[in-house]
């Protein structure tokens, strides 16, 4: 089954439970500055937008990595291998979505890995603004689902692949 992290900003209340869940799962503590997902607050427009890696088809980060430290798993998730990452940060400038970030305390980069298929952010979201859904069921044209897709089941098709 192809599943995707689906984000509906309209439902987000800005509570940051997702950021805490993410940092807890990945860092073992509550530390939103190390969360792989970030909630943007557009105060004047009364809008909150949770934002994380879309596991994009192009996998810019993976393609840019000089040492093969980012690979794509069978679900289409791009995963950083800490043992291989040298901390060159090229992936952080290569990802045009800005969703790989450098973690100065480890000297390596971090990005969303969909928690191995059980996204903690989605479970923690109290309003279902973040859900982990069957792509078919969402019924959305992939292009129209903002920041929300995985290429589950397909191989990465390179940095310039047509959508």
């Amino acid at each position: 089954m192809l599943k995707a992290l689906t984000i509906d900003p309209g439902k987000c209340t800005g509570c940051k439970q997702c950021e805490m869940a993410c940092s807890y799962v990945n860092e073992g503590e509550f530390n939103v500055s190390k969360s792989r997902i970030r909630v943007f607050d557009f105060h004047e427009e009364a809008r909150f937008v949770p934002y994380t890696c879309t596991q994009c088809d192009e996998a810019w980060c993976q393609q840019a990595c000089p040492v093969n430290a980012i690979t794509t798993n069978e679900m289409g998730v791009k995963i950083v291998h800490d043992n291989l990452c040298v901390g060159c940060k090229v992936c952080t400038i290569a990802c045009p979505f800005g969703t790989v970030n450098y973690n100065a305390s480890t000297g390596k980069v971090m990005k969303c890995d969909l928690c191995g298929g059980d996204p903690a952010c989605a479970s923690a979201c109290p309003t279902d603004a973040i859900t982990f859904q069957d792509i078919e069921q969402t019924g959305f044209d992939k292009m129209k689902v903002w920041a929300t897709k995985t290429t589950a089941g397909t191989e990465p098709t390179g940095p310039n692949a047509p959508a």
Binding site: F40, V49, N160, P162
Partner: peptide, 23 residues
Amino acid sequence: AEAYVAVMQQGPTAGYTGPKVAL
């Protein structure tokens, strides 16, 4: 970062717009 997220959301496909360098 805010600017980016904001304009991406209002992108031409009324939502997600992946950067494409080659078609």
